[in-house]
Design a protein around this nucleic acid. Structure first.
Length: 456
DNA sequence: TCTGGGGTCCTAGGACCC
DNA sequence: TCTGGGGTCCTAGGACCC
């Protein structure tokens, strides 16, 4: 648990990432408030540009509130394909610094510089590495990044947070507590609203306050694991290694509906569809799973889960689907459901086992399916996902922010749509702000180019 | 028109086993 | 014939993170 003597752990965080990519690709939005997130009636903010943050708009805020706070902002749907492309370039730059890179999300990662080839890991040497990295990333992506470096993960992350936006901070070994102790407890990773409220009852507001509390008292208040880890963090102790190969432990898909749903047949159909998506991702990841979990959020936002564990792992869509619908039967849905989710856990590396599929294959070719007695009466509804979508979501063909191309006018993006019309601004990352034109929504010369809804 | 979607880790209680 | 003590697995829920 020795804390290292050099600030060789680096943390990189792209600034207001989704909004920054939108401003890069939509020149007319540069310098203006941009809010990216779910545009439906129950959407929330994913990322607000710094111009929008001035109005108090924050991540995870309901879109309705964001609109009230900042009426003149541009409200855009997410374009994950674009974000993934930037992320790939950035992560490649990090891997050029060291083989030990731990991505935390599309826009954030730790790098252990000590595992790379860096002769000078003094604060000055690390500062040079960080500045060069920021410069390269901006040159390759036109996105700004903030970088923190310190002797531990926690401090490196705090440093990049302090450096934001578009900055660099290296915490010199020996000065960790000087940086840490004046900060509010919420600066520590793992301290959210609930933990902050608990320690506030002990009069604790800053990390320095926290460091004066005995370990036993924190354990009593917060539990064994959380209490001890917070105690250590408050004293600047964090020996966690940067880990580049963390196996995933669960896969899940969930959907919040535009309006609450009570219709049980519809809910069963949606559950099956979610289960199929999960199974598809499971298969594509080369895993199988033993535990299936159904998640249900009721009209009043109460969230329940029901799970079942199989004797052995599966990646079969029909098994997962059947189980998920069975779990749904245990839930009282009469009051209305706002969200359904299906997840799998207990993952094993198990690429479609030959023994099993050989044994089962002989007794279930697609035609003699009679053993699944209850599937016969759904053949007519299970085929049309579009109907399910229409029953549950109102999004049209043209979603604000999406990339389009016009046969004569070239590439642009959807500015807004409605009443049978769609308005497009014709500009790209490499043009000056461009002109706006309005078309009929079914104009044959206009077509979409990106897959907006393909989530991360 | 309050409150997304994808995850991780932890806890507590019961079953079960030695 | 008045109550052990671990350990593991499973389920449900909660806190937290981006």
């Amino acid at each position: 648990m020795t804390t290292r003597s050099e600030p060789s752990i680096l943390h990189l965080d792209l600034d207001a990432f989704f909004a920054a990519v939108e401003q890069r690709d939509k020149p007319s939005l540069r310098g203006r408030p941009v809010i990216v997130g779910g545009l439906g009636p129950r959407g929330v903010v994913s990322t607000a540009s710094y111009e929008a943050r001035v109005f108090g708009v924050r991540s995870a805020m309901p879109m309705s509130e964001a609109r009230a706070r900042c009426r003149h902002a541009a409200f855009l749907a997410r374009r994950f394909d674009a974000y993934r492309k930037v992320s790939t370039v950035v992560m490649d730059q990090l891997r050029a610094l060291s083989p030990l890179v731990e991505p935390l999300s599309l826009d954030e990662a730790f790098v252990d510089l000590a595992a790379g080839e860096h002769p000078d890991l003094s604060p000055g040497g690390v500062r040079a590495v960080g500045e060069r990295l920021r410069t390269t990333i901006h040159a390759r992506t036109r996105i700004t990044a903030s970088v923190g470096a310190a002797s531990s993960k926690t401090l490196a992350k705090i440093a990049s947070e302090q450096a934001k936006p578009d900055g660099l901070m290296v915490i010199e070994p020996g000065t960790e507590l000087d940086v840490l102790h004046p900060l509010g407890v919420r600066a520590l990773p793992g301290v959210g609203p609930a933990t902050a409220a608990r320690v506030a009852r002990l009069g604790v507001r800053t990390v320095g306050d926290l460091a004066r509390i005995a370990e036993g008292e924190l354990v009593d208040l917060l539990g064994e694991a959380h209490g001890r880890s917070l105690f250590r963090l408050a004293h600047g102790l964090d020996g966690r290694a940067v880990s580049s190969d963390r196996a995933s432990k669960s896969i899940s898909v969930e959907d919040t509906f535009d309006r609450d749903i009570t219709d049980r047949a519809l809910l069963a159909g949606l559950t099956r569809r979610l289960a199929e998506k999960v199974a598809d991702r499971l298969v594509r990841s080369g895993h199988s799973a033993r535990t299936i979990t159904l998640k249900v959020r009721l009209h009043d936002f109460t969230t329940l889960s029901r799970s079942a564990t199989l004797p052995g792992p599966t990646d079969d869509a029909r098994s997962i689907s059947r189980l998920a619908v069975q779990l749904l039967d245990e839930v009282d849905t009469a009051g209305g459901i706002r969200l359904l989710g299906v997840g799998v856990s207990g993952l094993s590396d198990w690429v479609q086992d030959d023994l099993f599929s050989a044994a089962e294959g002989s007794e279930q070719p697609p035609t003699d399916d009679a053993d699944d007695a209850d599937e016969g009466d759904e053949g007519d509804e299970g085929d049309d996902a579009g109907d399910l979508d229409a029953a549950v979501h109102s999004a049209g063909r043209w979603v604000p922010g999406m990339d389009v191309v016009h046969a004569r006018l070239g590439p642009g993006w959807v500015w807004g749509s409605g009443l049978g019309r769609v308005t497009v601004r014709f500009e790209t990352a490499d043009t000056p702000p461009g002109p706006v034109r309005t078309f009929a929504a079914d104009d044959p010369e206009l077509s979409g180019v990106s897959h907006l809804q393909e989530a991360d």
